[in-house]
Design a protein around this nucleic acid. Structure first.
Lengths: 225, 225
DNA sequence: ATCAGCATTGAACAACTGTTTAGTGTTTGA
DNA sequence: TCAAACACTAAACAGTTGTTCAATGCTGAT
């Protein structure tokens, strides 16, 4: 499945070790020394190859983005992020580090995280357009906002994987906490909501619509007297 | 709205400064010296009052949990987490620090984050039960898993607020990025999905159900030959 | 064989980290 | 009024951090 041939250079080994540690411990907690040790190399060599810790991180950003960008581009299935994660889980250990890394990038202010989020939203919006045309997805007025909501919901599993596994008592694979057992437990409840909805009728939707229409005079200000 | 009388002791000032910096920069990036400086105090005094940086964090955990636990306990409305955030946004600056702090706690392995997540799930499940009884929420077979999904979706706004504001071009209040403008843009699309669903029919749900039933012989193992 | 250009290391450096300590006022209770 | 307890600071300490540097080995072209 991994299309690019494995890179066995020392530089690549350092970078992969960094991806692993950055993903597991976060960028500030993971030290250059720990990365060097994990790669079986001296701290000086890490700097020699990447200039600085920031440079190392940038190289990791680029590599992880390149790895994930090629994935699942042409899939027409909806909730493709979930499908994508499913794919990952067919080769759990192979992509586990990248998943954890992306989670850190999304949480911590980062250009790579921004790029990844935007890519997921764009991909989701494409899927929605295709689904509307095919008649499988409802014809939403604002496909962009809808895509943002769907993407955000999907990515919440990535951000909260540890908690989901914890409360559902599922096996939580290191370092991201998202395992097959978790997906098996959450797929149906999520699809249930996405298929038949959460509410029985449009009461809450209508109420919100009214409230928001009233609110148009009140942009920005909150405490109306 | 804030029930507990403001605490002006130096200890409380240090704790509040720590909540602000921990929430904005994360626990490892925020230093004892930065907290002390923000509180207008010497680093030694921070340790004098809280024993250690870990002790300071524990005090922050307790305080933030106590602040949020009293909120929105008896609300019967569904998607109460979103409502809760709405409430917060009526007093944006007042709870902004706590929101950012909880976001960090949820991302970073932490007992306080665990407790908060569990509280949100429990509250969501209570709301689902009440809604089913009242006939406003569909009668889900597995209310616990459904509650986990809904809670996760709701918290995605907290975890990804910065990205949501960014891609939607909304004003992103520091330090958590969730503002009234963002909520106004996302409320209807989210409620739309929760009311009428995302798909036009049960095709995907049925397919997933079949796939999962077939999969029962394959627990744990993945690469079937 | 030789030399240039690398990859690589070990040791050191300066800055920063959490924490300690000794000391100084300031409050408080007997 | 006195002394004990407390709030607080400045300085220093030891450990960790990212980074530098001189030295060493190695490889490949000449």
């Amino acid at each position: 499945m991994r299309s690019i041939a494995e890179d066995f250079t020392t530089r690549a080994r350092i970078r992969d070790a960094a991806i692993g540690l950055f993903g597991r411990d976060g960028f500030s907690r993971a030290t250059v020394r720990a990365v060097a040790s994990a790669a079986g190399v001296s701290p000086g060599l890490v700097i020699h190859h990447f200039g600085s810790k920031a440079g190392l991180r940038e190289a990791c950003d680029q590599h992880v983005l390149a790895q994930t960008a090629t994935q699942g581009r042409e899939k027409a299935d909806p909730i493709s992020t979930r499908q994508l994660i499913q794919d990952y889980l067919n080769h759990p250990d192979q992509y586990a580090h990248e998943i954890a890394y992306i989670r850190r990038s999304l949480g911590d202010e980062s250009d790579a995280g921004d790029a990844f989020f935007d890519a997921v939203v764009k991909q989701t919006q494409d899927i929605i357009h295709a689904g509307i045309e095919a008649g499988t997805i409802r014809n939403f007025a604002d496909t962009r906002s809808t895509a943002v909501v769907i993407a955000s919901n999907s990515l919440s599993m990535l951000m909260l994987g540890r908690h989901l596994s914890r409360t559902l008592g599922a096996v939580a694979p290191e370092p991201h906490g998202i395992g097959p057992e978790l997906l098996r437990q959450l797929t149906l409840p999520a699809l249930e909501i996405y298929t038949h909805g959460f509410y029985t009728d449009s009461r809450f939707l209508d109420a919100a619509r009214d409230a928001l229409e009233q609110d148009t005079t009140n942009h920005g200000r909150e405490h109306a007297p």
